[in-house]
Amino acid sequence: MADELAGRRVVALDLDGVTDKAGLRDRCARALELPDWFGRNRDAPADFLGDHTVWPEGAVEKGLLIVVRNWQPYAKARPEEWETAREVFAEAADRTSALSVALALGGSS
């Protein structure tokens, strides 16, 4: 589910109900529309973020903005896992100016 915002492809990554790493990986795979061959291993989100060939159409040229919503309950319940996920997002965004990741502070509405 990607929209365009100021020329960027915007993907909402909603973590509502995510309770563990497997759930996080599955939610990332669905939101980011990862191809089946990406699998669901622990490196899949980092691999995806670093592989522009599988980004949504137009994202490489226009940029990709991932908006992470409803992340606070997961971060509170699994702080070490969340820290790792946050680091993956931050490192990927540092590697390419085409990627931005925003943590939404409001609710889902």
Score class of each variant (00 low, 15 high):
Arg69Ser: 01
Ser97Val: 12
Ser100His: 05
Gly39Trp: 07
Leu5Gly: 05
Asp14Met: 06
Pro45Val: 06
Gly39Lys: 09
Asp94Tyr: 08
Arg27Met: 01
Thr96Asn: 08
Leu105Arg: 14
Lys62Gly: 14
Arg69Ile: 00
Leu64Ala: 01
Pro35Gln: 04
Arg69Trp: 01
Leu49Thr: 11
Ala102Ser: 10
Val11Thr: 07
Glu61Gly: 12
Arg27Asp: 00
Arg30Asp: 10
Val10Gly: 04
Pro35Asn: 04
Ala85Ile: 00
Ala44Pro: 06
Gly107Phe: 07
Glu57Ala: 15
Glu61Gln: 14
Asp3Glu: 15
Arg95Ala: 15
Val60Asp: 11
Val60Ile: 06
Glu83Trp: 05
Ala44Thr: 14
Tyr74Gly: 00
Thr84Ala: 09
Leu64Ile: 03
Gly106Lys: 13
Gly50Val: 11
Glu81Cys: 10
Ala22Val: 09
Gln72Ser: 12
His52Pro: 05
Leu13Met: 02
Ala12Val: 13
Pro45Ile: 04
Ala93Glu: 03
Leu13Ser: 01
Trp55Ser: 02
Leu105Tyr: 10
Phe38Arg: 04
Leu32Phe: 08
Gly50Ala: 15
Thr96Gln: 12
Gly7Glu: 03
Phe48Met: 14
Pro45Arg: 03
Arg8Glu: 06
Ala46Thr: 07
Ala22Gln: 10
Trp37Phe: 12
Thr96Tyr: 05
Pro56Gly: 10
Pro56Leu: 12
Asp14Cys: 06
Val54Cys: 11
His52Asp: 13
Ser109Val: 09
Arg86Ala: 14
Val60Lys: 06
Lys76Gln: 14
Arg9Pro: 01
Asp36His: 13
His52Tyr: 04
Ala104Asp: 12
Gln72Leu: 08
Pro79Val: 06
Glu87Tyr: 07
Leu15Val: 03
Ser108Lys: 08
Thr53Arg: 11
Pro73His: 13
Gly7Ala: 03
Asp20Glu: 10
Asp14Val: 04
Ala85Asp: 01
Gly107Thr: 14
Glu57Gly: 11
Pro35Met: 06
Phe48Glu: 08
Met1Pro: 09
Val60Ala: 11
Asp3Trp: 09
Asp43Lys: 11
Phe89Thr: 00
Pro56His: 07
Val11Gln: 03
Leu34Asn: 01
Val68Thr: 03
Gln72Pro: 02
Ala90Glu: 15
Ser109Met: 09
Leu15His: 02
Asp26Glu: 13
Tyr74Val: 01
Ala92Asn: 10
Ala98Ile: 03
Arg78Tyr: 00
Trp55Arg: 00
Asp36Thr: 13
Glu57Lys: 12
Ala29Thr: 05
Ala59Tyr: 01
Gly106Trp: 07
Pro56Asn: 09
Ala59Ser: 07
Thr84Met: 07
Arg95Pro: 01
Val68Pro: 00
Leu32Ala: 05
Glu87Gln: 14
Glu91Tyr: 03
Asn70Cys: 04
Glu4Thr: 15
Trp71Cys: 00
Ala22Gly: 08
Thr96Ala: 11
Asp47Phe: 08
Gly39Met: 10
Gly63Ile: 03
Ser97Pro: 11
Phe48Arg: 04
Val10Gln: 07
Leu5Gln: 15
Ile66Val: 14
Glu80His: 12
Thr53Gly: 07
Val10Ala: 02
Asp36Gly: 14
